[in-house]
C-alpha cells in the first residue's frame, strides 16, 4: 500500500470540507474570545477592586483556569455540566464545549485587561478624581481609552492563540479544522489531511499576526 493520493488531489476533491472546518475554527475562536472578553472584563474589575474577598475569588478563578489543561476543562464541561445543571440538558453538546472555551479565554483576557488598565499612569486617575469625576467616569473616559491601545493587540494575540486551542474541540465532534481529519480518515486518508490542516493553521496565524503588527504600528503613531 503506497502513500495514496497527494496533498493537492485531496485538497482539490475535499476543499469544501476544509473550508467548512476553517470557518468553524474561526467562528469558535471568535465566540470564545468575544464572550470571554465580556466575562474577562468583569473578572479584571473584580481583581482590580479593593475588596480582598473579591480579589481572592478572582485570583482563584484565573489560576485554576490557566493552571489546568483546556482539554480537561472541556471534558469536565462535556460530562459534568449536563449532570450538574439539568436545566441545560436540552442544549446541544456544542454549548458545553463552548462554555469551556469561553471560561478558559476569560481567564486569559482578564489578565490582559488588568495589565492594560494597570499600564495607565496612576496620575491620570488622580487628576480625574481631583476634578470630581466619579469612579466610573474616570474608568470609562480616562483609563479605558488609554488602556485600549495596550489591550487590543494583546486581545488579537489571544484570538490567534485561541485558533490553535479550538483544535481540541474536534475531540467532541465540533465541526472545526481538526474534525476534518476524523471525517477524511473514514475515507482512508490518513496523512494528507494532517498536513493540509497544519498548513491552514499556519496561514491563519501568520496572516493574523501580520495584521496585529500593523495594528500595533498604527497605535504607536498616535503616541
Amino acid at each position: 500500500m503506497g502513500l495514496g493520493p497527494g496533498l493537492f488531489d485531496v485538497l482539490q476533491e475535499y476543499w469544501p470540507i476544509f473550508l467548512k472546518g476553517t470557518i468553524g475554527t474561526l467562528k469558535y475562536a471568535a465566540i470564545a474570545v468575544s464572550l470571554g472578553s465580556v466575562l474577562g472584563a468583569f473578572i479584571a474589575l473584580i481583581n482590580l477592586s479593593k475588596n480582598k474577598i473579591a480579589n481572592t475569588i478572582g485570583s482563584v478563578y484565573v489560576n485554576v483556569l490557566r493552571g489546568t489543561p483546556l482539554l480537561v476543562q472541556m471534558y469536565i464541561a462535556y460530562f459534568f455540566l449536563p449532570i450538574a445543571i439539568p436545566v441545560l440538558n436540552g442544549v446541544t453538546k456544542e454549548v458545553y464545549v463552548l462554555i469551556a472555551l469561553i471560561l478558559n479565554s476569560s481567564a486569559y483576557v482578564s489578565e490582559i485587561i488588568r495589565g492594560g488598565i494597570n499600564s495607565v499612569d496612576k496620575g491620570q486617575t488622580e487628576a480625574a478624581r481631583s476634578l470630581g469625576l466619579t469612579a466610573s467616569h474616570t474608568m470609562t473616559k480616562i483609563v479605558l481609552p488609554q488602556a485600549v491601545k495596550n489591550i487590543l493587540p494583546a486581545l488579537a494575540n489571544e484570538y490567534i492563540a485561541m485558533i490553535k486551542e479550538t483544535s481540541l474541540a474536534g475531540t467532541f465532534m465540533l465541526y472545526e479544522l481538526m474534525y476534518t481529519r476524523t471525517l477524511l480518515a473514514n475515507k482512508f486518508l490518513v496523512w494528507q489531511p494532517l498536513f493540509i490542516i497544519a498548513g491552514i493553521y499556519l496561514v491563519l496565524t501568520l496572516l493574523l499576526s501580520w495584521i496585529v503588527k500593523i495594528m500595533e504600528k498604527r497605535f504607536a503613531v498616535s503616541d
Partner: peptide
C-alpha cells in the same frame, strides 16, 4: 465628588489627559 469639584489640584507631573 461634589466637594472635589470645588477643590482644584495641580500636580508636579501635570497629569494632562494625553
Amino acid at each position: 465628588n461634589k466637594h472635589r469639584q470645588k477643590i482644584g489640584m495641580v500636580f508636579q507631573q501635570f497629569n494632562v489627559f494625553p
